[in-house]
Amino acid sequence: MEPDMDRADSTETASVILHNVSKTYLLDAVKVPALTDINLVIRPNRFTVLSGASGSGKTTLLNLIGCIDKPDTGEITVSGCKVGELSDDDLSDFRSKNIGFIFQNFNLLPVLSTYENVEYPLLLAGASAKVRGERVTKLLKAVGLSDKAKNLPGQLSGGQRQRVAIARALTRKPKVVIADEPTANLDSKTGTAILALMRYMAERFQISFIFSSHDRDVVKAADDIIYLKDGVIQDPRRKAGGSAP
């Protein structure tokens, strides 16, 4: 299918472009197509949701956009960089600099405090102590966890952990944040608050958030929605800031 969304006006400024991307998994000896011939443009600074039933290929697509998986065929461009051409180390560096991750299970490092978890990507980047201090303090304040800086993840609630994860994802000012079912393990009230926080952060820091989610509230909150079925895009839709297909 054609990359209907914003093909005309946004390929140069798009956050992510997928061109003829396919991915197949081997389940025992059987080849299972996860994504088939995906063409897609994701607009910058928007909330984009990948939606669909279980096994539709949402997470696979998210993994490919997040550069933690590679397509069998096709080309992926993230923030203007053709990631298929990068070596493993270069991909790591690219992810560190350009992509933030928010996981369903938060995936914080349990031995690091809230502050250290948020600081970790900056340590990887070799940032100075001053830069790290300023950035982490600012982010913790933005997610409302300044008073929990010294707490370990085990001492935080689910919502607080996800807020730490959001702060960590934004530490290096990425262009794209990948969020795999970010509200799945949260109650609806906390989920709503987390969504609101992500919306606020996206606007404040000019970031593209790309979700995979079943959650109706998440889908409702999205600017763009991409429906997947059996590894094929069914219905790309734009809710705000652009034309519908």
Partner: peptide
């Protein structure tokens, strides 16, 4: 294992 995946996702190289 999940932590390893997380560290790799957020940019730690294999050597790290």
């Amino acid at each position: 294992t999940v932590e390893i995946g997380t560290l790799r996702a957020i940019g730690l190289r294999r050597a790290g």
